[in-house]
Write a protein that binds this DNA or RNA. Structure first.
Length: 174
DNA sequence: ACACTGATGAAT
DNA sequence: TTCATCAGTGTT
């Protein structure tokens, strides 16, 4: 076996890291989704945001465990999707240990900026809710060398959360 | 600056 | 069962 990088599906244990560790670790990794026509899309992740626990007032789980947020409590490795503004499907990866609601929002991939556009490009819809990333046949993430040079900023459009959450540098991008 | 769009959770 | 709100995008 040579020294070249073997493409491999990320395992459940990888997603079980704390969201503040996992979010930047997902930069550069390959988001892979099977299209309805059978083709496979692979895009490097370029922009993410971390949503961390019930105490984080910007996180949907701040309202507790509901039918919508229940998957965030299931432990890292599941897909969390939701429809926003009646139009755009947001793609998230659940992170952390079971019982601790956390998720990483995929805000951008190579050549596709904006979480709504990512959802559209990847044909994300309600049916992806709860998909297990480590063994799904239609959505997963493949490993790639870590990105060491990335930037951070406050999260986008969460002013309603107020301090200190609105100031957290929990947006990570290349 | 604003229309679009509908699921969601809180208030009635 | 009504109501305000929303982790956004495209057009004016």
């Amino acid at each position: 076996m040579g020294a070249f990088f073997m493409s491999a599906k990320l395992k459940q244990a990888f997603y079980r890291q704390d969201v503040l560790t996992l979010a930047p670790a997902l930069l550069g990794k390959l988001l892979c989704v099977k299209m309805t026509n059978g083709s496979l899309q692979k895009y490097a992740i370029t922009e993410v945001e971390a949503y961390r626990g019930e105490e984080d007032l910007a996180c949907h789980a701040a309202k507790g465990k509901t039918e919508r947020t229940r998957i965030m409590y299931a432990g890292g490795g599941f897909v969390y999707v939701y429809l926003i503004y009646g139009m755009h499907w947001m793609l998230n990866m659940v992170s952390g240990e079971e019982g601790v609601p956390q998720a990483v929002l995929i805000r951008g991939v190579e050549g596709v900026n904006g979480p709504g556009r990512v959802g559209k490009r990847m044909q994300i819809d309600r049916s992806f809710y709860g998909e297990a990333l480590w063994h799904s046949q239609r959505i997963w993430i493949e490993d790639a060398p870590p990105v060491v040079a990335y930037q951070t900023s406050p999260r986008i459009n969460i002013a309603y959360a107020g301090a200190p959450w609105v100031h957290k540098q929990w947006r990570f991008f290349i």
